[in-house]
């Protein structure tokens, strides 16, 4: 057995185990961590296919950012396991039906695309009509295809992401009103504050000269504006 075959089976086994644990783990935090492990193993398999850019991006985007935020949310949850398990048998038929349907669909795609044919080699699938320059690395090749042959789908995908981002921001952006009106002090204002705005220094003699008449309170101590 070649070493890379061994590595493939190792990653594949870990991937399947982690995937199973994602849905069977009792603790949701453990489930998320197993999902992270699954992403890692998947990226290992992609590296074996010499798709190093996709593999590293998978780790960077999903493991490094998306799953971190996911974990953030899940850690805050207070999950009642008894209530979760209540409807298990009631919803089981629907769940099984959906699962079977999904499996059939995935099977159809796989058989329809690759059935009977040899698996295409990774490099051979990239056929670009315009070849302005030669690429040696995976990333360069991918970039050229994205920005020439698939420019419109790529821009469309970017637009969809932008819409999703704007929607997410506008959903969370709200001003408080009434008693809870915004009491935050804008940091911009705090940063530009000088000490002259907050405090006035008054020079005065350290000792008062004795005078005949009882003196009115002297010296103007002015408090700063808060």
């Amino acid at each position: 057995m070649e070493f890379s075959t061994f590595v493939f089976y190792f990653f594949a086994a870990v991937l399947i185990f982690a995937g199973l644990r994602v849905i069977t783990a009792r603790n949701p935090v453990h489930a998320v961590l197993f999902l992270v492990l699954a992403f890692f193993s998947a990226s290992g398999i992609w590296i074996l296919l010499s798709a190093e850019f996709l593999a590293i991006t998978l780790v960077m985007v999903y493991v490094g950012a998306v799953m971190v935020l996911f974990l953030f949310v899940v850690m805050m949850l207070d999950i009642d396991f008894a209530r979760l398990r209540e409807g298990f048998w009631k919803y089981l038929p629907i769940g099984v039906a959906v699962g079977v349907l999904l499996t059939i669909e995935m099977g159809l795609v796989l058989v329809g695309a690759f059935g009977g044919k040899e698996m295409p080699a990774a490099a051979a699938t990239i056929t670009s009509q315009s070849k302005p320059f030669e690429c040696t690395s995976n990333i360069c090749e991918l970039g050229r295809v994205l920005y020439t042959d698939y420019a419109y789908p790529f821009e469309l995908a970017a637009l969809v992401l932008l819409v999703a981002m704007v929607a997410a921001v506008s959903l969370t952006l709200r001003r408080r009103s009434g008693a809870y009106a915004d009491k935050r002090i804008p940091p911009e204002a705090q940063v530009v504050v000088r000490h002259e705005d907050r405090m006035i220094l008054v020079k005065m003699a350290s000792e008062k000269e004795m005078s005949e008449e009882p003196a009115a309170p002297t010296g103007t101590r002015s408090g700063g504006t808060q």
Partner: peptide, 24 residues
């Protein structure tokens, strides 16, 4: 490796897990 810079970025981005897991 060709994607060295990306590799460093990816690896440093998973550093946060140690802190999160320890904290939780």
């Amino acid at each position: 490796i060709n994607a060295g810079l990306l590799f460093v970025l990816a690896v440093t981005s998973i550093e946060v897990y140690g802190v999160i897991i320890a904290g939780w």
